[in-house]
């Protein structure tokens, strides 16, 4: 395994596919470890009694576990400081023992930023997450500028500052 500093420059053009990340089946132990490591202690993911009391047949994976797998897909492709935004929609539950695969594809390149559609699909074809990431096309050293601030965003209620 070569360190990221020697990783060859990746191809950022429309249509380029990221190398897929195929995960092994998710075990109950994986769910317990992720609960502790992520700080999401919701028992519905780790305690069968709790999952059943909530009306489920079994425990299911934390959504953020799959998003973290997608994060690995991205940071395995480009150095992390080139990721400018990353968002997902959780579309289906991930049952315990499910086997996720993360995929990504460049769908647009504009103004030095690439838009990558990402997704997680289980072995049975269920799509559990879909989303997008924006990635700086060039290495961070070339694009790091002082004006790199977060847009305050139209969502914020008027009259309130943070």
């Amino acid at each position: 395994m070569s360190p990221p500093s020697s990783r060859t420059e990746v191809e950022v053009r429309v249509g380029a596919e990221l190398p897929a990340l195929a995960l092994p089946p998710i075990s109950r132990a994986d769910l317990a470890l992720f609960a502790g490591a992520s700080g999401d202690h919701n028992p519905i993911h780790i305690d069968l009694d709790d999952a059943r009391a909530a009306g489920f047949d079994d425990v299911f994976a934390q959504g953020m576990l799959s998003m973290a797998y997608l994060g690995r897909l991205l940071t395995g492709w480009v150095p992390q400081d080139r990721i400018r935004s990353f968002e997902v929609r959780f579309t289906a539950l991930t049952p315990v023992h499910a086997q996720p695969t993360c995929t990504g594809r460049v769908v647009a390149v504009d103004g030095g930023l690439a838009t990558v559609d990402v997704g997680v699909t289980l072995a049975d074809g269920t799509v559990t997450l879909t989303g997008q990431a924006t990635i700086a096309c060039e290495s961070a050293a070339m694009t790091r500028t002082p004006e790199r601030t977060l847009d305050e965003g139209a969502h914020l209620p008027a009259g309130r500052s943070s």
């Binding site: 909530a54 400018r84 935004s85 990353f86 968002e87 929609r89 959780f90 790199r148």
Partner: peptide
């Protein structure tokens, strides 16, 4: 018990 995580977004300025 009635909540689900629907979407998650991150924007990054620095590491």
């Amino acid at each position: 018990r009635r909540i689900l995580h629907g979407r998650q977004r991150f924007e990054y300025a620095r590491t």
